[in-house]
Computed example of a mutant assay.
Amino acid sequence: MSSPAGEHVYSLTFFFTAQVFCELFHDWPDALTQLGHRDTIGLSPKVILHEEPIDPRSLLLLSQIMHCPYQGQAASLFLEAKVLELMAIKMANSFGSTQKRNRSLTKRELESVHHAYHLLLDQSQSAPCLEDLCRMVGLNRNKMNQGFREIFGDTVFGVVKKAKLCRAWSLLEQTDLSLVEVALEAGYKNQASFTTAFCKHFGCTPGSLRRS
């Protein structure tokens, strides 16, 4: 996949030995049960490749990992915690859980929930209200809320909030916009509400992040 000229592309890779992975996650998904075993020829371990879109929670964690605010031992602890949190999310999202396998939503309803999710990410700056979103994808309110909790582990409002905060984080790092302009671009009505939400979620103010 190519990227536009002049656009920076970042890559992060995390490595776990099979032994460490097994110690961290005692109940492996079916897809990983053979990960720690050598093949019949005995030459190399099994290789598993899985690709999927980056959800807002993972995007937030990746941003925090790439811009660790600490140094020394504090940085090591911070990064280790964030990587483990990211792994927990990917384990749950990528390979599913008993709850996901027992979903009561139909295939069409699941497709509608995914459609709604992408609409929210595309329009996070001025996201439609829940009623309008339900009407756009043809789902009722209960099914929409149920689908978001089962698939994304959050409410519709929670997904929108995280998407807005991730956008704000990127704007603070990649642009020279003022804090007021960042707040408005991210979809907040004023700087005060933006600062409150940002500080509560990231543990630091937008101004301190930019200064760091």
Score class of each variant (00 low, 15 high):
175 T>H: 14
17 T>R: 11
67 H>L: 02
72 G>S: 11
206 P>T: 07
114 H>Y: 08
159 V>M: 04
2 S>A: 06
28 W>K: 08
111 E>G: 10
188 Y>C: 03
108 R>Y: 08
140 N>I: 08
194 F>N: 00
79 L>Y: 02
26 H>W: 02
130 L>F: 03
210 R>H: 02
206 P>D: 06
121 L>K: 09
205 T>I: 09
19 Q>P: 01
164 K>Y: 02
111 E>N: 11
133 L>F: 11
25 F>Y: 14
24 L>P: 02
33 T>R: 09
69 P>D: 15
84 L>F: 06
154 D>M: 08
124 S>M: 04
211 R>C: 04
41 I>S: 09
157 F>P: 00
176 D>K: 02
199 C>I: 01
60 L>G: 12
54 I>E: 12
191 Q>Y: 09
137 V>R: 10
135 R>H: 15
68 C>W: 13
185 E>W: 15
177 L>W: 10
145 N>T: 01
186 A>Q: 06
119 L>G: 10
88 A>Q: 13
206 P>K: 03
109 E>I: 07
156 V>Y: 03
192 A>P: 03
47 V>Y: 07
149 R>Q: 10
40 T>A: 10
44 S>M: 14
198 F>T: 04
97 S>R: 05
110 L>S: 02
18 A>S: 14
153 G>R: 14
19 Q>M: 05
56 P>D: 04
166 C>N: 15
158 G>K: 03
180 V>P: 00
49 L>F: 07
30 D>L: 07
19 Q>S: 07
175 T>G: 11
152 F>G: 08
71 Q>C: 13
153 G>T: 14
91 M>K: 01
159 V>S: 00
62 L>K: 03
55 D>P: 00
40 T>M: 09
114 H>V: 04
124 S>L: 08
206 P>V: 02
66 M>R: 13
166 C>R: 13
153 G>D: 15
84 L>D: 01
13 T>I: 07
